[in-house]
Design a protein around this nucleic acid. Structure first.
Ligand code: FES
Ligand code: FES
Lengths: 151, 151
DNA sequence: AGTATTTCGGATATATATATCCTATTTATG
DNA sequence: CATAAATAGGATATATATATCCGAAATACT
């Protein structure tokens, strides 16, 4: 059997998205959070999550404050401006938007793979969805109890 | 950096889809093909492709004939009945249709993750596409020169 | 200045997917 | 029956993703 255990996003990306949401929620209250708190809340391995947080800092999606009383935070103003696509891009790259569904070297209208036309529709829908979903709405859905970060 | 190099389908699944299309094309001409021919035509590692072919045989998607003058084939009658979804299911399983986009234990309307509503739409589109794309049309697009299996 | 706290980042370990190799088994044909 | 040709399948190797560990650097507070 050649079953895989994943779909669309890497584990790193799943953790990154959930972590960013949790940081946003806490930033609304002016509270910084640590990798330990985050990983507990999103049910992820702490050290691995910390690596991903570093990556998100480098991509200027979240901010880190070193030292005592430090932690991770997001500028309140930017929470509504950050789109899911930016987080996914920072961690998984942009092949998700551009890559060929059947692994040809590139997805090319002029040299399409057998599923190109149909695959492109779905892929573009995914792209549109990611580009139009804001961190703000994801965070608000958690605080309102409409959605959950774990289990 | 935590970039991944894949998207949606595993390599095994990509090879499986392309191999099945190539087998279908040859079965229209009553010709059996070997893993060597297949892997050359779809630009994949031969031995690995052979493993996937075995898997497809076990799932009754293709037929194998052992011994001299053997090879892989598909009943002409079934080519139009086989859907892309069956191939994907055989190799990558059904998590692609059912799994949570953010890795929660299960995708559950009553306990949704932050992206559930939006993700479900895209996932269901993908499911519909796979279930309504026949092996026949994929094969015909190759023979007509409208699409390609490699490069 | 000293200390506790916290992120940063390199090195390493583990799990999984991908790929290869070699032998056994099957079968058409001479 | 012998031989050649072909798939089946176990064992093994490699690449990548995931996960852990530990010391270095930065910062708030005393
Ligand atoms: S060429 Fe394969 S998806 Fe476009
Ligand atoms: S719960 Fe996450 S996609 Fe449905």
């Amino acid at each position: 059997m050649y079953y895989n255990y994943w779909f669309v996003f890497s584990k790193a990306c799943e953790y990154g998205i959930k972590a960013t949401i949790f940081i946003a929620i806490n930033s609304y209250d002016g509270r910084r959070v640590s990798p330990k708190e985050i990983s507990k809340e999103i049910d992820s391995p702490t050290a691995f999550t910390a690596k991903i947080l570093q990556d998100l800092v480098r991509h200027h999606i979240i901010k880190s404050v070193k030292g005592a009383y430090g932690g991770f935070e997001i500028d309140k103003d930017t929470i509504s401006k950050i789109k899911l696509a930016q987080i996914v891009n920072a961690i998984d790259g942009d092949q998700i938007y551009k890559g060929c569904g059947l692994g040809l070297q590139s997805c090319n209208e002029a040299h399409p793979c057998p599923v190109h036309d149909k695959f492109k529709l779905v892929r573009d829908d995914l792209k549109f969805m990611l580009e139009h979903t804001s961190l703000e709405e994801l965070a608000l859905n958690i605080t309102s109890g409409a959605s959950f970060l774990k289990i």
